[in-house]
């Protein structure tokens, strides 16, 4: 079974680098331009992991995670968060309150992001 990864960022050229790397590793990768679009894509097709930026138009990363946690079917979706912010966000706080698995600072390494995605997906119980 091919794992599905949803990448969400309004800086499309940048997230395409991650898409390229992750796709090459054999995952099924989708891209959303903002939180609202990501939410609609999740409704239509549930990914195995979400990687989202914080600052985005319409619905930002935190708003998206909050919405995911409010719905039973998306409550347990693993989330990795990307941020270009300096000190306004704390990984511990995000993990404790919203179950965000990790906070990855921009600029990020596509290789490092892929490894983190792999680790998290490996932890998941294998479906039937």
């Amino acid at each position: 079974m091919t794992h599905r990864v949803l990448l969400c960022d309004d800086e499309i050229p940048i997230i395409r680098a991650a898409e390229f790397k992750i796709k090459k590793a054999g995952y099924d990768v989708r891209i959303a331009g903002d939180g609202e679009e990501a939410w609609q894509m999740i409704q239509a097709e549930m990914p195995d992991i979400l990687v989202t930026d914080c600052q985005m138009p319409r619905l930002d990363g935190l708003g998206l995670v909050r919405r995911l946690r409010e719905h039973p079917e998306t409550r347990d979706l693993p989330v990795l968060m990307l941020t270009a912010k300096g000190f306004e966000l704390s990984a511990e706080e995000l993990a404790r309150r919203w179950g965000v698995r990790d906070l990855i600072a921009k600029p990020f390494s596509p290789k490092g992001l892929l490894e983190r995605i792999r680790e998290i997906l490996h932890e998941q119980p294998v479906g039937p």
């Binding site: 790397k21 270009a84 600029p107 990020f108 390494s109 596509p110």
Partner: peptide, 21 residues
């Protein structure tokens, strides 16, 4: 400073990611 660094990190992220690729 936070805004400047945010604005700088975004293009830097692009450069770094593609250079790594």
């Amino acid at each position: 400073v936070s805004s400047v660094s945010h604005e700088m990190k975004t293009p830097l992220a692009g450069i770094k990611a593609y250079v790594e690729l």
